[in-house]
């Protein structure tokens, strides 16, 4: 108990230290319009890496070492099945009733034939797994990214996705388990299982990135655009011909930093296909 308290206070003071460092570093931002609080974000990123290295990663490594692969797969499937409930709701409110219905079908099939979700039978039957969350739903509704944020523990988000996360927690069936012991255990096992599933890739990202913080940030932002568009984001803007290749940082942003931070780019930014690269970079989903 004392130990736990000590750890908690250690974590607290680390957060405090990180934030203090961030305030100091906050002025030294590189001027990326998508990342107006880069200094703070970098500090939280470092904090998250430290916590991961100290706690989550070792636990995940132990889990991977001890658990046979079929068990690990079963655990992933189990939580994936529960998640399909909320995914279905998101597809429905995004105006994709067919996908929503397919998600319900997945839950029905996997919960029964798939033995409480331990086996993903539905995918084999042609009911494809979707990946949706409330941040994507907001994006679909036309809400802009907003500023890039690194949340403590939760990691990369945009302002919009951070709002989405709050709703996702509300929509997470696990949170409605009565027994707090079972609930916390479920959350913990899910976190470890998720973490273990990407252990192998770490050396690759370390090898690839010149600046890990920026690499993760830019990948997150691209990934979210892709997800909001269900894998078909507007592509042309990625590859302007060489003559007109512009870098977003060389273009005067059309939005002020604060406008970006709170509302993101206007939803109309991607209507005009000849939009400037700046507009293309900060564009949001609007269809």
């Amino acid at each position: 108990m004392t130990n736990t308290k000590n750890q908690t206070s250690n974590v607290r003071s680390s957060v405090a230290a990180a934030l203090a460092a961030a305030m100091l570093a906050g002025c030294a931002t590189s001027g990326n319009p998508k990342d107006p609080i880069e200094g703070v974000n970098r500090a939280v990123f470092t904090f998250n890496e430290t916590v991961d290295k100290a706690v989550l990663k070792p636990v995940a490594q132990g889990y991977e070492y001890v658990m046979p692969q079929p068990v690990q797969t079963g655990v992933l499937n189990f939580f994936s099945n529960i998640a399909d409930v909320w995914i279905s709701v998101n597809n429905l409110v995004q105006g994709k009733p067919a996908d929503a219905l397919s998600d319900v079908g997945r839950v029905v099939v996997n919960s029964t034939v798939g033995i409480l979700g331990l086996f993903d039978v539905a995918t084999g039957m042609g009911l494809e797994k979707h990946e949706e969350d409330f941040g994507q739903t907001l994006g679909r509704w036309g809400v802009g990214d907003g500023a890039y944020l690194v949340l403590p523990i939760f990691g990369p988000r945009t302002l919009r996705d951070a709002g989405g996360l709050a709703v996702d927690i509300f929509g997470d069936p696990i949170m409605y388990i009565d027994s707090s012991e079972v609930r916390y255990t479920a959350v913990g096992v899910r976190a470890v299982s998720d973490r273990a599933s990407f252990l192998k890739a770490e050396s690759a990202i370390d090898a690839a990135a010149l600046d890990k913080y920026a690499y993760v940030r830019d990948a997150y932002l691209q990934r979210r655009q892709s997800l909001i568009h269900d894998g078909n984001p507007p592509r042309d803007k990625y590859y302007p011909s060489l003559d007109v290749t512009e870098n977003i940082l060389d273009v005067t942003p059309t939005e002020s930093t604060w406008a970006l931070m709170f509302v993101g780019a206007p939803a109309s930014a991607n209507v005009d296909t000849d939009a400037s690269p700046a507009a293309a970079e900060i564009e949001v989903a609007s269809h």
């Binding site: 990326n32 010149l210 600046d211 830019d218 990948a219 984001p233 940082l249």
Partner: peptide, 16 residues
């Protein structure tokens, strides 16, 4: 998964 290997380096390169 929607992440472009090439364009993902843009910001880092620009900063450098």
């Amino acid at each position: 998964a929607g992440v472009s290997l090439v364009t993902n380096y843009r910001e880092t390169f620009a900063a450098e």
